[in-house]
Structures are given as C-alpha cells and as structure tokens.
C-alpha cells in the first residue's frame, strides 16, 4: 500500500485509475513453476520456509491457465524450447516472463560447445526481467520479482497504445 499511505483522511480514497489498477495487478502475481534444472532447486528454496515467496503474494501454480508469471528456471534445450513456446501461448493475458539464471538468459556455461542448448530463452518467448546468477540466490530472485512488480505497476493498461 506504499502509494497511498498517509495521503488521505476520513475514508476518502483518491487515486488515478492507472495506479489503482497497477496496485491490484502487481501485488499478487501467481507464478507458473517451470523449473528445469539447478535453478529450480533455488526456486523451491525461495518458496520454502526461510525465504518465503508467499509473503509477496506468489503461489506456485502448475497449470499455465492459472498463472500470471512464468519463471523459466534453468537451461532450456532445443528439445524443450518448442514446449516452452507452447506453454507460453497457453497462458492467459496479461502474462509476464522472468528468465532466472544465466542459462535461461544467454545459454550460461554451456554457450560455447552446447549444440543442444538454447542460447537464451528470449529467442522463443519475450522476457520481461532477467535475473543473473548461476544459480541466483533466493534474495536475487526476490529482487527480480520486486522489479517485475514495479514494471507491472508502471504499466498503463487503459490507454490505447499507438501502434
């Protein structure tokens, strides 16, 4: 509620519609658990007891229809790349993608001789936030999620986008 603290009195809420919608949309993104490799273990550790993801409003959902954010955690191989694209297309709008770890960002340590490794998941799906690390610490992933929340907050869904 940081946007609205100490600004009003006596039950009157005045806000721009964009900010209100941004607050509603950004503070409870449900994520699609797409753990592929080592980063998946750090994603599980972020969702577990010590660094609790649920306090930022994120719950793991296994079906793409119920999720807002897809966290691609781990190396994407060419065999898997076609499925990543299919699952991204199955998610309902508005949807966002976080690329977690250096393998999903750009191929990671396997960029040089990896004939079967996709050099970055942004070759198949559009990515919003990149979280570097191998694997990134849970705190780094949480920072990536907070940056995504800022990005969603600053979107203006009601204005018509000039093409």
């Amino acid at each position: 509620m940081g946007v609205f603290e100490n600004k009003f009195q006596d039950n009157v809420v005045v806000a721009s519609l964009d900010k209100l919608l941004g607050w509603a949309r950004s503070t409870s993104p449900w994520f699609f658990q797409f753990g592929l490799a080592c980063c998946a273990i750090e994603m599980m550790a972020t969702a577990a007891s010590r660094h609790d993801l649920m306090r930022i409003g994120m719950i793991p959902r296994s079906s793409p229809r119920q999720a807002d954010v897809m966290i691609v955690a781990g190396t994407v191989t060419l065999k898997m790349a076609l499925r990543v694209k299919k699952l991204y297309e199955q998610m309902a709008n508005p949807k966002y993608v976080i690329s977690m770890g250096s393998c999903a960002t750009s191929g990671g340590p396997y960029w040089q001789h990896g004939y079967h490794v996709l050099k970055g998941v942004d070759l198949v799906v559009p990515v919003d936030v990149y979280v570097p690390g191998c694997p990134p610490r849970p705190e780094a992933l949480i920072e990536g999620l907070l940056k995504l929340q800022e990005k969603i907050q600053s979107e203006r869904p009601l204005t018509r986008k000039t093409a």
Binding site: L78, S106, G107, Y115, L118, K119, L123
Partner: peptide
C-alpha cells in the same frame, strides 16, 4: 547444424 525448427543453434 545451423538451425533446428527455425531456432538458431549457435550463439
């Protein structure tokens, strides 16, 4: 190989 199903393989 250069591409696989339209995706570029090499970095």
């Amino acid at each position: 190989q250069e591409t696989y199903h339209g995706i570029v393989v090499q970095k």
